[in-house]
């Protein structure tokens, strides 16, 4: 840095990666973190709409229940599951374990599968409870 302070380590730049499940899960952790940024704003809006009153709550509920809203909610549910499960893996990695390429590759593939299946199951249960089907 120009001011002489040691720079923080940066993530490798996007273009120099060769595709692998492990790098896909790494990028996806970042992408889901950004998606959850939006999701948390939305969650706060939803919570505040209950306090604001019936009109606000029913308007927001109608938006969330529309086809576009449901796709967004599914994205939120999947993002939360992937990011949380992969976050757990990050914490395990921080202990110095599970880092060898073979294990990392396997757990990456498992994470994509598990998060998708869990998100689908949770979404189906929620839709059933909501009486949508």
């Amino acid at each position: 840095m120009a001011d002489g302070t040691p720079a923080r380590p940066l993530s490798p730049h996007l273009q120099i990666w060769r595709w692998s499940p492990t790098m896909a899960s790494s990028i996806t952790h970042r992408a889901t973190g950004v998606a959850l940024y939006g999701g948390t704003i939305l969650l706060a809006l939803w919570f505040a709409s209950i306090a604001a009153g019936r009109g606000a709550y029913e308007t927001l509920s109608a938006v969330l229940g529309s086809p576009v809203g449901l796709v967004g909610l599914f994205g939120f549910a999947w993002s939360l599951l992937f990011h949380t499960l992969n976050g757990l893996r990050h914490l395990y990695w921080d202990s110095g374990r599970g880092l060898d390429p073979k294990t990392a590759r396997l757990t990456s593939i498992a994470l994509f599968g598990a998060s998708a299946i869990l998100a689908a199951a949770i979404f189906a249960l929620a839709l059933r409870n909501a009486g949508t089907f």
């Binding site: 019936r54 709550y57 029913e58 229940g65 929620a126 839709l127 409870n129 909501a130 949508t132």
Partner: peptide, 15 residues
């Protein structure tokens, strides 16, 4: 997640 599943589609009074 538990509460979203349990209360999805709740009307205003329930929420």
């Amino acid at each position: 997640l538990w509460n979203i599943v349990a209360h999805a589609g709740a009307d205003y009074e329930t929420a």
